[in-house]
Design a protein around this nucleic acid. Structure first.
Lengths: 218, 218, 218, 218
DNA sequence: AATGAATGAGCGTTCATTCAT
DNA sequence: GATGAATGAACGCTCATTCAT
């Protein structure tokens, strides 16, 4: 709920800001329009089955226009991923700063990753599924942003270990990968399945509980 | 280690058995040869970037021969996935039957899923990455075998809840998805990264510990 | 002679008209260029032995361009046939309107069908031979235009019966089919043979005489 | 009716004769079986859309077996055509010998060409349609047999001119081509259409009448 | 900047033919 | 002779990308 607003607000802010600020032309809208169209198209048909012309059509621009904003089809997916991950990361950093204690922060992180996607089924599909479809993305698994995101998760865990809240006999990185995988797996099933409202929120509560108990020092 | 043998043994058994039993021709070899070649090629380049002709070459057969055993390129991936999942499932059932208690069984499951892939980096890549590249596979996420596999995981958890070993305030299915995701995420990072020997074994121990504590009733 | 001009004029008119009228782009030229190339290629090698790439090369366009104007290779043949039949039909209607009496009109029709192909050996070959090579064309034997053409022939005969010029104990449709077959057979032999100049004109005279005597009421 | 028997008898005679006479092996049956299967398959799908394996299946032999009796797929069609044309020619020569006068003989010829195909829709389709689908057949339009057949028709007309029954201001060869085309056109329409019983017989009567009047000297 | 017609390299799949058994 | 698994050359079509306007 609240979380989704971060993204909305973010998007609004960036485009309005730019348009008004005057530094950049309104064409920034176009970039964003293309990305939004790409989310829809990729979610519906998958990266490989999606045609550049379909994205163009969905975005209301000419095929060639896409190449004014992106280097290639791969770049569209990559940019999409980078862009959305950046937003999530920004929102996370802002939000987690408000919470004290590794446990509370990890719980919030879990809630947010899943919460941000509730109601954004298409984006969820793209992130969970299509991410693995671009050869380039794969080979550099992951993009800078993704690595950054994982490192952020790991740092939350490491902080907890340092403060004595979490067991320190586990690798923060491995745990971060595992946690991301767990969240990703749940999201994937949800997105490809019925995508029931509230489904992810419930899952978030259960997962947070499980993970916190699992990491708890005793 | 031990686990890998299940697969090896399985393969050997099946092909020898058939060759001797005489029911099928030696062409069974060819199907298996194609699947093994596909693992290599898909792992190296990804499903979409892989060419049927490359698989054929790697398998030492003509391009057309592939179509004597599979309907399409998609079908090769699908069959590969079904086949390997079935083997894993069979091995798991055999192995878990030897253990008492949900905790012991869940730990063993985690060890096996990761253990079976240690040393089989290519297969690991195919299963974790390429699985999400076939449109057909995606839309039916997943294939019968995959659902069967997830259900098997859920049943181990549900058994633990029934016996009082595990908390019963979590959904076995959600937990199964999350656990699979966690294992999958770890495997993916391992496979695409350095794939250090013993890496997955260590991760398995940590994950088992975390998961069991998280599910533990108290 | 005179007749061929109908086609020439028709082509010129249509493309000029479009270019000037401005409704369509110059791409109409391209469609026509492809059709003309297809006539040459189909005539030389037959429909099945003709390669799309050969047509493209002969037309001076890229392979893919053909698919901007036609759905498939089959569609090229079909369109070719429809297009040329329509032109013939239009020319016939214009010309026959100038003649009084069923006999005179039938004679003119025979002269025109053969006359239009004199000097257009390739088109003759395509129409007589390749027409029967497209599965789609076959199954719908024939296309709307072809049926329209046969009906037109039948109507000329039926008119003659109504006016009392022709015997009325024959079926106009059967006669139309037979007459078309006769003209087609003669054209085929001519096109595949020496295609001697004036050959079809002579044949036209003989066939007109034979057919008119055969249909004459007495 | 009577006519069809020629073919039946002919077929029976040849295979029985050979089987009993002992000179050739029973494999001649196989050749004939393949040809009959080819008629069915070619008629249903056209030459190009027909698969050698389909013919083999329809004939109840292995794919490779076909190559023991024929050089290629083209050769199957060619042989089929040659074989059936020869039978028709033999039947025609036998039958026409019984009739006096060019008119009676030409009428009989028309009746027979159409009559032989009544009830043999598949063969009719193959002869009228598929004949034009083999590049090789086309280029040698026609095969020896076909030319022989046309020459036979021309000779009947030439005989009539010599005896004074027919006008001598037409070319027997052109007339033969035209007549064959007329019969072919009628047959094609019939075969691809409803193929109503008696349809060809009626058409034969009308065509014979028309042609004889058209050729009549007066 | 925006367009969209044109490009052409690239690939999955087919199927006539072969040949070891 | 008969088989049918295997072959691999061949091709229609697609679609990401370019570029003249």
């Amino acid at each position: 709920m609240t979380e989704r607003r971060f993204i909305r607000r973010g998007e609004a802010a960036s485009s309005e800001g730019r348009a008004k600020g005057g530094g950049r032309k309104r064409t920034d809208d176009k970039r964003e329009r293309i990305l939004r169209a790409a989310v829809k198209v990729f979610a519906k048909k998958g990266f490989y089955a999606s045609r550049v012309s379909e994205i163009a059509k969905a975005a209301g621009v000419a095929d060639g226009t896409i190449y004014l904003y992106f280097d290639s089809k791969d770049d569209v997916l990559e940019s999409l991923f980078e862009d959305r991950t950046e937003r999530l990361l920004t929102a996370l950093r802002t939000e987690l700063a408000k919470h004290e204690g590794a446990s509370a922060r990890l719980r919030r992180l879990i809630e947010m990753q899943l919460g941000l996607l509730e109601g954004q089924r298409e984006l969820a599909e793209v992130i969970t599924v299509n991410l693995r479809q671009s050869t380039r993305l794969l080979r550099q698994y992951g993009s800078k942003r993704f690595v950054e995101y994982l490192e952020f998760m790991a740092s939350v865990i490491a902080d907890g270990q340092r403060s004595g809240e979490f067991r320190d006999d586990v690798s923060p990185r491995v745990m971060a990968r595992a946690l991301f995988g767990a969240l990703d797996g749940v999201t994937l099933t949800w997105a490809l399945g019925e995508a029931r409202a509230g489904g992810l929120d419930k899952a978030a509560a259960q997962l947070a509980e499980l993970w916190l108990r699992g990491l708890e020092k005793r």
